[in-house]
Design a protein around this nucleic acid. Structure first.
Length: 445
RNA sequence: GACCAUGUAGCGAAGACGGUUAUCGCGCCGGCCUGUCAAGCCGGAGAUCGCGGGUUCGAUCCCCGUCAUGGUCGCCA
C-alpha cells in the first residue's frame, strides 16, 4: 500500500512578476535554439508558455551545441524583465537567465523532417497531415487548436450557465438520422449498426427529459466528398431546446452563443489571435433572409439565376455573404425557410406554407457552418410524414416513443466546430482545423 | 464519382529546342559571432527528377498507362 499526497495545485502556471530576480525551475521542450558566440537563446515550450531562456556558455555546464530542437530539458534560472519582439513567444516581457540546464530526453533522430522553428511551416497539406504529431508542434498550428478548444469550451460553458444540460449520446446507433447512403455500417456483435451521423434522435429525446440540452462530440459522414470543407468525422456542436416562441428563437440563441464564444476568445486567446492575425467578429445585428429572397437577390444583384434549384450552391453562399457584408456589414447571415423537401423528415414546416420549412442555415464568411430548425413534435405528424416518405415507422419505434407520450414544441441546431475554427483562423481547408483529419483517403495518423 | 492541375534533395520551389556537372531557399554538417527576435555571416554535403512502358543516337523534359496529391463540383456541418 502506498498513500499519495493530495495535490493542492496541479497547475504549471508561474507568477512571473512576483518572481523577478528570483530563481525558478522549468521543464519544457526546446522549440528553437539560437546559438551565438557567447551562449544561446533557447525557446522552451511548456504547457502554459513558450518562453525565452538565455544561457551564457560560461554559466552552464552543458555544451549548448549538443541541445537538439525538441529535446526535453530541465532548467533553473533567474526571472528577468525583457522585451521580446518574436510574437511566437509568450510571455514576451520576461525571460529566464539560466544557471543550469540538463537534457531529460533527446530525440533519437534529429533534425525533424520538417522545420518547426520557422515563422511559417511552409509544407504541403499532405506532409502536414502525414507528419501530424510533428507539424502540430509549430506555434501557428498549436494556436489553431487553442482557438478550437476555446470555442468548444465556451459553447459548453455558456449553455450550461443558461440552463442547458450537457448530454453524451451513443455514437453506435441503430439507425441514421439523415438517410442511408452516407452512413458508416459497422458490425455490432453480428447485428447491423451504424456510426452516428448526428445526435439528432437522442437530443430530441432528451428535450423531453431536460427541456434544453447540448452535446459536443464527433459525428460521422460516409460521403465520398473530397473538398476543402468536408471531413468524414467532425465535431458537431449541437443544441436542442423546447421553444416558447417560433424557430427564430434558435437563431437568437445561436447568436448569443457565438457572441459569448467570441468575447471569451478575445479575453483568453490574445496570444493566438495575435499570432494567427485573427479578426474576431461579433454579431451586432441578426440578419436573416428567406431562402427564396436569396435566390432573387442573387438574380437581381449578380445576374445569376439559380431560382429553379432547391438548394444553395457554394457560389451562392459566397455571393450572399458578400452581399450581406456590403449591405449590412455583417459576417453572418441566417438563411431561413429552406424548401421542406430538402430537409429531413423531422423538420417542421410552416402550416400556412407547407413547402417552406421552419429551418435555417447560418453562413459565416461565405460558408455554411450551421443547420438548424424547428422539429415536428406531434406523434401523428411524424407518422404522417414518415409514411409519406415511404419510411418504415416500426423501425423507428424507440425514437418515436417520446412523441407518442408527449413532447413540447422544440428545435435545435448543429454547428461544425472545424468549419467555424477554419474560417476564424483564415485556413484554406477545414482539415487543417481537425487534429487528425479523416477523409476519403486518410485514416492515419 | 466528373473535370482541371501537380509530382524534381528531409521540406518548399525553379528549370530546359530533347544534349556535359539539374538551380534556389530552408533545414543539415563545419567554422565565425557578447543580446538574438520564428537570428546573421562564410564554407560544405545532400537528387535513381513518382512508378512502368514507348518514341529517340540520347528523355527529368515528348507520348501512353498507372499511382499519389491538390483544386473545382455533386453533397453537407
Amino acid at each position: 500500500m502506498k498513500e499519495l499526497e493530495l495535490l493542492q495545485n496541479v497547475d504549471t502556471a508561474i507568477n512571473f512578476t512576483d518572481n523577478i530576480d528570483k530563481e525558478i525551475e522549468l521543464t519544457g521542450q526546446v522549440s528553437n535554439i539560437r546559438i551565438l558566440g557567447w551562449g544561446a537563446f533557447i525557446i522552451l515550450r511548456t504547457p502554459r508558455y513558450t518562453i525565452q531562456t538565455v544561457a551564457d556558455k560560461n554559466s552552464v555546464s552543458l555544451d549548448l551545441s549538443t541541445i537538439a530542437v525538441e529535446s526535453t530539458v530541465k532548467v533553473r534560472g533567474v526571472v528577468k524583465n525583457s522585451n521580446i519582439k518574436d510574437i511566437s513567444i509568450y510571455p514576451r516581457d520576461i525571460e529566464i537567465s539560466l544557471n543550469y540546464i540538463e537534457t531529460i530526453s533527446a530525440p533519437s533522430i534529429s533534425p525533424l523532417p520538417i522545420d518547426t522553428t520557422k515563422k511559417e511551416l511552409n509544407i504541403s497539406l499532405e506532409t502536414q497531415f502525414d507528419l501530424r504529431p510533428l507539424s502540430l508542434r509549430h506555434p501557428k498550428l498549436r494556436s489553431i487548436f487553442k482557438i478550437s478548444a476555446a470555442i468548444f469550451n465556451e459553447f459548453g460553458n455558456f449553455l450550461t450557465n443558461n440552463g442547458f444540460t450537457r448530454i453524451c449520446s451513443p455514437k453506435i446507433v441503430f439507425s441514421g438520422a439523415e438517410g442511408g447512403a452516407n452512413i458508416f455500417n459497422i458490425d455490432y456483435f453480428n447485428k447491423k449498426a451504424f456510426l452516428a451521423q448526428s445526435p439528432q434522435f437522442y437530443k430530441q429525446m432528451m428535450v423531453g427529459v431536460f427541456g434544453r440540452v447540448f452535446e459536443t462530440g464527433p459525428v460521422f459522414r460516409a460521403e465520398k466528398h473530397d473538398t476543402s470543407r468536408h471531413l468524414n468525422e467532425y465535431i458537431s456542436l449541437d443544441i436542442e431546446t423546447a421553444l416558447s416562441g417560433g424557430f427564430e428563437e434558435l437563431v437568437q440563441i445561436e447568436s448569443a452563443v457565438l457572441n459569448s464564444i467570441f468575447s471569451k476568445m478575445k479575453e483568453t486567446c490574445k496570444y493566438e489571435i495575435d499570432l494567427l492575425n485573427i479578426e474576431v467578429p461579433e454579431i451586432t445585428k441578426i440578419i436573416t433572409y428567406k431562402f427564396n429572397e436569396i435566390k432573387e437577390i442573387i438574380f437581381q444583384e449578380y445576374k445569376k439565376d439559380f431560382r429553379g434549384e432547391n438548394d444553395l450552391c457554394p457560389e451562392e453562399e459566397r455571393l450572399i455573404s458578400k452581399f450581406v457584408k456590403e449591405k449590412h456589414n455583417s459576417d453572418f447571415v441566417f438563411v431561413t425557410h429552406y424548401p421542406t423537401e430538402k430537409r429531413p423528415f423531422y423538420a417542421a414546416h410552416d402550416p400556412s406554407a407547407p413547402k417552406e420549412s421552419l429551418s435555417f442555415d447560418l453562413l459565416f464568411r461565405g460558408l455554411e457552418i450551421t443547420t438548424g430548425g424547428q422539429r415536428l413534435h406531434r406523434y401523428e405528424d411524424y407518422i404522417a410524414k414518415m409514411s409519406k416518405l415511404g419510411m418504415n415507422v416500426e423501425s423507428f419505434e424507440s425514437y418515436l416513443q417520446c412523441f407518442k407520450y408527449g413532447m413540447p414544441p422544440h428545435g435545435g441546431l448543429g454547428l461544425g466546430l472545424e468549419r467555424l475554427t477554419s474560417l476564424l483562423c483564415n485556413l484554406s481547408n477545414v482539415k487543417e482545423a481537425s487534429l487528425f483529419p479523416r477523409d476519403v483517403n486518410r485514416l492515419e495518423p
